[in-house]
Design a protein around this nucleic acid. Structure first.
Length: 583
RNA sequence: GGACCGGUAGCUCAGUUGGAUAGAGCAUCAGCCUUCUAAGCUGAGGGUCAUUGGUUCGAAUCCAAUCCGGUUCACCA
């Protein structure tokens, strides 16, 4: 039972004893006492005033006296300020709680609840490398998946690769025309970047050809249609759809390069997937569904033969689900994939991590699924997130203002290395440990930076600021839930408990203050996880982590300066900083 | 124009089911290094919580209206 629950129960007991009527935890509120007042937790009296017909202070005095009398092991004193009953918790109770958390192997984790969730995230195109926006997507998706896991869900992390279509053909044709057979191996360029370079090359060439045709007297519209490279691209798409061998071979070769590049990036940033869907396999899905929908009367055909759904009754528009030539559109594929996911995994909830520019699209998707009577329609959840903008404005591919994911990752890691080396406190680390340390700090800072903002909000990325490691937070951002547990678990690993060391060492007030702050934060941790799980919002956990880091940091910087450091304390400090002590 | 989302310190953002004098980091200013964490600490300044009205013991938080900003409303994906 958490400390707040314990206090609630005691208050209910005491109130019942005092006033001879039943109470529930909803009749009053227990908050943390603000630091400027004396006490640890505050019971808010106002809500009791009406039913008891007494002044807040009168209730507070009676309640405070009864609580301290009935539970001397829990409450040592109380005071009343403006209707708030502040209670001071005994030191021994704090220590007991810390010990209890410390001994709980499953701290912060819930038992399996038998429910299965799929989280689809990242979902890139295979014609260019990942950028900063993908990183926000990936960190959100991955974190939500891990938070769901900690809350007892079985989680399938999935990804749909948009590996076909006209945009893929663009980089293919540019490669054919200009690459002279260049490969990642021959150029030492990461595969996704190499392919991305030819996508850029396509656009340059296309622009050039359009300009030439316009100079020759064509209208802009005609020039855009007639440009040879565009015609070639369209032909290539047709060839691909027919399965022409040399096109298929080029396609799979180039996609292979991209996948290799993506995998490298995913590995560095710690993203992983349980199931990969390929659009080239799924884009034909949904055709049967269109037929069924027509029979059910959910869809209707227009004179030209295209198939539509009328959503005006739901406040939306008419939406096409199949072209007049019988090919399926984006939304049709998505309906098919939604059903496929359900049939393959029997998932209870399907989470889509997709940017907020697709809010309308997902709304339509869900509505169509519902109208078709699909079993999973209600359980589609769109984890919508805002764009990442730069201080100079929006990221625009054509203007070259896109922040490349690999670049920023590398920059964060090398900055963390630079800072750490300047401080020269890693003499005992071997090469592998150093590498891990720099990665942890650099990536931790970046993850925190991108996750601390409410997902649905547009956020601004300031390179200087993120590299500043957000003040002191950098070294501590690795306090993800898993990390906190492993820190608390050091006992079983090393045979000696860091937290027990603290406890045995406690003689001074600052240490006790640290303990209280840590316990309060640890107490909030499962709640933060649960809230983050319910709202699919990892920023809750990120902010929790931030507070915990701050607590640790302010304490250890203060005391490492003021006091000589014992070997035990050094060990503990290093553990808390997430570093491996080599002593 | 319709739909959805946002507006909190100079900047970037927090702010639990409505609770005490609205917080943090960065930036600014004033202090703190005879080096075992200055990636830091102590302190200060900085706010009409977009505006107005409502709900009540009590509103940044809930409701309504208005203003400003963003996204979206394709036989693109």
């Amino acid at each position: 039972m958490s400390i707040v629950n314990t206090i609630q129960q005691s208050v209910i007991e005491s109130l019942t004893g005092l006033f001879n009527q039943p109470f529930t935890e909803k009749d009053f509120q227990v908050n943390e006492t603000k630091p400027e007042f004396e006490g640890d937790y505050a019971v808010v009296m106002f809500s009791l005033v009406k039913s008891l017909k007494l002044s807040p202070d009168a209730i507070g005095t009676q309640l405070g006296e009864k609580l301290t009398a009935d539970h001397p092991e829990l409450f040592t004193s109380f005071n009343i300020i403006k209707g708030f009953l502040n209670l001071t918790i005994s030191d021994s109770y704090w220590r007991g709680l810390l010990q209890q958390h410390h001994l709980d192997i499953c701290y912060g984790k819930k038992a399996l609840n038998g429910k299965k969730v799929m989280v689809e995230y990242s979902s890139p195109n295979t014609n260019k490398p990942l950028h900063l926006g993908h990183l926000r997507n990936i960190f959100l998706g991955w974190s939500v998946a891990e938070i769901m896991k900690a809350n007892g869900f079985e989680v399938v992390k999935s990804c749909i690769l948009n590996d076909r279509g006209i945009h893929i053909c663009k980089s293919m044709i540019a490669w054919q025309l200009f690459a002279n057979g260049a490969t990642p191996a021959s150029t030492h360029i990461k595969g996704d970047h190499l392919v991305g370079d030819y996508y850029v090359r396509f656009n340059d060439e296309y622009k050039k050809q359009v300009a030439e045709l316009m100079a020759a007297g064509q209208t802009k519209e005609a020039a855009e249609k007639e440009a040879p490279i565009m015609k070639g691209t369209q032909q290539m798409l047709l060839d691909w759809e027919e399965g022409k061998p040399e096109v298929m071979e080029l396609w799979s070769t180039m996609n292979g390069w991209v996948y290799e590049g993506f995998d490298t990036t995913y590995k560095i940033i710690g993203a992983d997937f349980d199931k990969i869907y390929y659009e080239s396999n799924t884009y034909l899905l949904g055709k049967d569904i269109v037929q069924q929908g027509l029979e059910k009367g959910v869809f209707f055909k227009k004179e030209d033969g295209s198939t539509w759904i009328d959503l005006t009754a739901d406040g939306l528009d008419e939406k096409i689900v199949q072209r007049k030539d019988g090919t399926s559109v984006y939304i049709t594929q998505d309906i098919g994939l939604a059903l496929l996911k359900y049939e393959q995994y029997k998932i209870d909830q399907s989470i889509y991590v997709i940017g907020n520019e697709q809010n309308y699209h997902i709304k339509v998707l869900q509505l169509i699924c519902k109208k078709l009577g699909m079993p999973n329609a209600e359980n589609i959840y769109h984890l919508s997130y805002g764009m990442v903008e730069l201080t100079t404005g929006k990221m625009k591919g054509r203007e070259g203002t896109v922040v490349d994911a690999d670049d920023i990752v590398e920059e964060m890691i090398s900055t963390s290395q630079k800072h750490t080396e300047e401080l020269g406190k890693v003499k005992d680390f071997n090469a592998d440990e150093l590498k891990e340390l720099y990665n942890t700090i650099g990536l931790g800072a970046m993850k925190f930076y991108l996750l601390r903002v409410d997902p649905k909000k547009t956020m601004v990325f300031n390179p200087a600021e993120s590299i500043d490691f957000h003040g002191f937070t950098g070294p501590f951002v690795q306090y993800t839930h898993a990390r906190i547990r492993s820190i608390l678990r050091k006992e079983t690993v090393n045979g000696e408990s860091s937290m027990v060391n603290v406890e045995l060492d406690v003689t001074s007030t600052p240490l006790l203050k640290l303990e209280k702050n840590v316990i309060v934060l640890l107490e909030q941790y499962p709640l933060a996880l649960e809230q983050a799980c319910n709202e699919h919002n990892p920023s809750v956990v990120a902010n929790y982590v931030f507070n915990l880091a701050k607590t640790f940091n302010s304490f250890y910087s203060e005391h490492s300066i003021a006091n000589a450091e014992s070997p035990e304390k050094k060990q503990l400090r290093l553990q808390l900083a997430g570093m491996t002590a080599n002593t």
